[in-house]
Amino acid sequence: MLDWNEYRKQLATGVKEIGQLSPDTLKGYIGLSSAGQKTDLLGAKVRELIALAVAVTARCDGCITVHTEAAIRRGATREEIAEALGVAITVNAGAALVYSARVMDAVKEYPREPSPHE
């Protein structure tokens, strides 16, 4: 497993470098990141729990380390984090099922060639 604290430090260094080389990219990201905080209808803790679930579905280690720390700082418990991750797991399984149905639909579009076993 990763040393998440060290990884978060390395990530901050990399993001700083990108910000120096491409400041508008970083400004745009910060604008997107802070947009949901303006209304604060969900609250910071719920937003971080959602971010963790999305981080898992996006398979983003950087998002995981940043949003885990933020969720804990905003009062999320291990149980709340586990429940949010349970939602991510359910969605991923559901997405796999939905996209499996799409594959089966795509199979119908291709001419079927007899297999050597027929």
Rank of each mutant, 00 (worst) to 15 (best):
A55C: 04
A95Q: 09
A76F: 04
T13G: 04
T77A: 10
G75E: 12
E69H: 15
L32C: 05
I89A: 12
S34I: 11
E69V: 15
A44V: 11
C63E: 05
A53C: 03
E6M: 05
G36W: 01
A84C: 12
S34T: 14
L97I: 07
R74G: 12
E17S: 04
G36M: 06
I89W: 14
N92K: 11
E6K: 09
S100N: 14
G14W: 08
A96F: 06
S100D: 14
C63Y: 01
T90S: 13
R47I: 01
K16G: 10
V56A: 15
L85T: 09
R8E: 13
A88M: 07
K45Y: 09
K27M: 04
E79I: 08
P23G: 02
L11K: 07
V56C: 13
L85P: 00
L42P: 00
T13D: 06
V56E: 15
N92Q: 10
A76V: 03
V91Y: 08
E6A: 05
V87D: 05
K16A: 11
V87W: 07
A84Y: 11
A76E: 04
A84P: 13
I64V: 13
T65C: 12
I64E: 14
I50T: 02
A53T: 04
C60D: 04
V66I: 15
A71W: 01
V66S: 15
K9V: 02
V15F: 06
L32H: 02
C60Q: 01
R47L: 01
V91G: 02
E79L: 09
V91R: 04
L97F: 10
T77K: 05
K9A: 10
A88T: 04
A95T: 11
L85F: 11
G14Q: 07
V66C: 12
K27I: 01
Y99C: 10
I18H: 01
